[in-house]
Design a binder for these strands. Structure first.
Lengths: 163, 163
DNA sequence: ATTGACAGTTCTAAAAAAGAACTTTAGCGT
DNA sequence: ACGCTAAAGTTCTTTTTTAGAACTGTCAAT
């Protein structure tokens, strides 16, 4: 598997990993959801090298997750804002946060709380089924081939009956 | 921010990224959920170097996501199975898959379909609120400091009134 | 006696990331 | 006019990771 063509693999995990499967990228996206928008702000908050930050932002823009928007002329200055495509990553970030809350918190408890504006309560994200609305758990899901799957030819195998 | 201490940051994203925020690790976990268990199987399916695979599996075991279980003696052979903690990563993988399905699929459609055993239908994962059951979207969430947050002292700032 | 499976380890070369300094355009204070 | 600061990068060198391939040890089967 090559990184350069990972986004062309017949697997949605691989394709998404091509976009966000990188330590810095996930932390940059976290900050985007916290409304951080500017190069300097990302750099200061994360302690990422400027070189890498520029590279990651370029890639996120190329994948349509962020948009580079001028916020002033002379000198031209740009900031990075989540596109619809980027906002659609919210469930990914929320499920990552929730796993960390439950499995990596120390005695103090969780670092952040999330309030559901429309109901006004602090909540946990729950994965549910789009059809029946029931809770989804790992043991309750079956995987099938979909139309976009291209099966690679299985490797030739020497069997007792083959030459 | 240093990788070695990322799992101690006062942020659940950072802590989770310390465990899974790596291209190979996410692909390894995908395979784990597809019931791949053995070193050779991971290596063949992913094309990862054996060195890195050994390293990533060791780390996942250290973080309690996988368990290394002997499946035969003489010679001792081990396989890697998801723990409860690992199974709890299911929503993370499902939301990653779903984003890829929606935003990275080509004309053929999605590579895999998921069936909800208990209702029998192919479904999409939907993030909902644990309190009201309503759908969660990025624009509908407010973030607050939690008990586990440690704010870093803000950097000294030269202001007109300061010396 | 040889071959092959499996779960790794051990090398070297190539690629990526860290760390620090430098660039460019412009506003502000004196 | 002069120096200072800010923002958004780029450029450079050093260090760390990763890729790629070969090798090891234990056993079973041919």
């Amino acid at each position: 598997m090559k990184w350069a063509t990972l986004d062309k693999e017949p697997c949605s995990v691989a394709r998404t990993v091509a976009v966000i499967g990188d330590r810095w990228t996930l932390l940059i996206l976290r900050d985007c959801f916290l409304r951080v928008r500017r190069f300097e702000a990302f750099q200061t908050r994360l302690g990422i090298t400027r070189h890498l930050l520029a590279d990651r932002l370029r890639k996120l823009v190329a994948f349509g997750v962020l948009e580079r928007v001028a916020y002033q002329d002379s000198p031209k200055r740009y900031e990075y804002v989540l596109t619809e495509r980027g906002l659609a990553l919210h469930p990914v970030l929320m499920s990552i946060v929730h796993w960390g809350d439950v499995h990596m918190s120390d005695a103090r408890g969780r670092p952040m709380l999330h309030e559901h504006k429309s109901c006004g309560h602090v909540f946990d994200p729950v994965m549910t089924c789009s059809v029946c609305g029931g809770r989804i758990s790992a043991r309750d899901v079956l995987t099938h081939d979909g139309p976009g799957l291209i099966r690679r030819a299985p490797r030739a195998r020497r069997t007792p009956s083959s030459s």
